[in-house]
Design a protein around this nucleic acid. Structure first.
Lengths: 230, 230
DNA sequence: GAAATAGTGTCTTTGAGACAATATATG
DNA sequence: CATATATTGTCTCAAAGACACTATTTC
């Protein structure tokens, strides 16, 4: 390592967010329409520069609550990956540390000062070439990570409210994976996974059909064995 | 986002490497003894500052071949995670983009200009508190990622040479996971995974026992179903 | 009652693991 | 031949999936 790190700069660092929510039958991602140059008026992932005395995760947390208005404690937030091609930002060398967030039932998004608008968009409708910078690449990485993590972690519950039915939990998987799962087998499988969910003892009525028992998240984070995507 | 990213700097960015090799019965990581301040003489992960016109992966590739003397094409290299706590480096704000590398049968490491020494060290012998900066944290993340990836990817083959026997491949798992696997079941399982390995048609003699057929990597990258860690 | 969703029972198939048996080398 | 490792065979057990069936609601 070199003694004079300043000779290698200057770099800037951003925290950019891939925020998903599941609203059956669609998985949605939060996008903003940029209010500033470069790419004013075009769509991008929410994000912003990390201050020199701010940790990466704090920068991501701040943006998450700023945009979604959601309690950060209730949401899932994890680092996704970093993107740092030299020409990815026309202004200067910028390394983007991308974060993946999963939120349940968010309210209408807030544009904030850096965006003309903020909106949830179905990830199926994105052609794959709409976003500025390298945000399409980042979004794709987020989609892959999210799908994979549903398999072997309990993160599907982050897309549900604090109390949810088996049907709601199942519809998270069905929506994210775009498949149909057998309700009976799914039910058994979830209950057989220690710490995945715990019963609340409450049964709630549905718009249609038999009322369902509700559950809340258990303490487990990993699912062993996993729930397989067919 | 802000129009004046320079106001948020200055940042420096490093690419740091967690380089593993498996030499049964030990999993080893490459460490360097720093030749420069800060922490001169202490042990750290190999790494270095990213130049302003250099991509992150190129910086990692350069360091990997520089330190190990290995053909980068033959090794596995992937981004691990980024570490950017404000006080992690005493000199200035430095974000470390960590990379995970897996190499087979490396030659003696080269110290290079920034290191007094470079050496392979067993990860079992590391107490967990030897490395400078936050490199213990980075190393732990690397260990976890590597163990997990062996389960559901074909990456175990990156720890083997271009041609290997079932026994060698099995010993990679046994060493990394510190378990014993049934040779018969392992053999069947690997051959039953499409694209994991392909036969070379060659049989080589062993120091002891029946000669073994050799295989090379197949085209598959993911293992479905995974090889379970018990 | 018809329709819809929740939840249970049960059978079949598949795959993992235990372990016996066979194959082929070295000393 | 004794021993070690490779490779194949076979049995058992457990989990996954298909699907019939029951339970309880709304309209």
């Amino acid at each position: 390592m070199d003694d004079s790190p300043r000779e290698f700069g200057p770099f800037a660092v951003t925290a950019d967010l891939v925020i998903f929510t599941v609203r059956p039958p669609m998985t949605e991602v939060l996008l903003i329409q940029r209010a500033e140059e470069p790419f004013r008026g075009e769509w991008a992932l929410p994000g912003g520069f990390v201050a020199v005395d701010q940790s990466l995760i704090d920068a991501a947390r701040f943006k998450l609550s700023d945009k979604t208005g959601i309690d950060v404690e209730a949401a899932h937030l994890e680092q996704l990956a970093s993107f740092g091609e030299p020409e990815r930002d026309p202004r200067m060398r910028v390394v983007s540390v991308a974060y993946l967030a999963m939120v349940a039932h968010p309210p209408e998004p807030r544009a904030g000062s850096d965006a003309m608008r903020a909106a949830w968009r179905s990830i199926d409708q994105l052609g794959g070439t709409d976003l500025v910078f390298d945000h399409n690449t980042i979004l794709r990485a987020g989609v892959e990570r999210a799908k994979a993590k549903l398999e072997y972690t309990t993160l599907a519950t982050s897309f549900c409210g604090s109390e949810f039915t088996m049907g709601e939990l199942r519809s998270v998987y069905e929506t994210a994976w775009d498949t149909q799962l057998d309700p009976a087998n799914f039910h058994r499988k979830v209950l057989a996974s220690p710490g995945f969910v715990e019963p609340t003892g409450i049964t709630i009525s549905q718009p249609k059909g038999r009322p369902a028992k509700t559950y809340r998240r258990g303490r487990a984070t990993d699912l062993r064995p996993p729930i397989q995507r067919s």
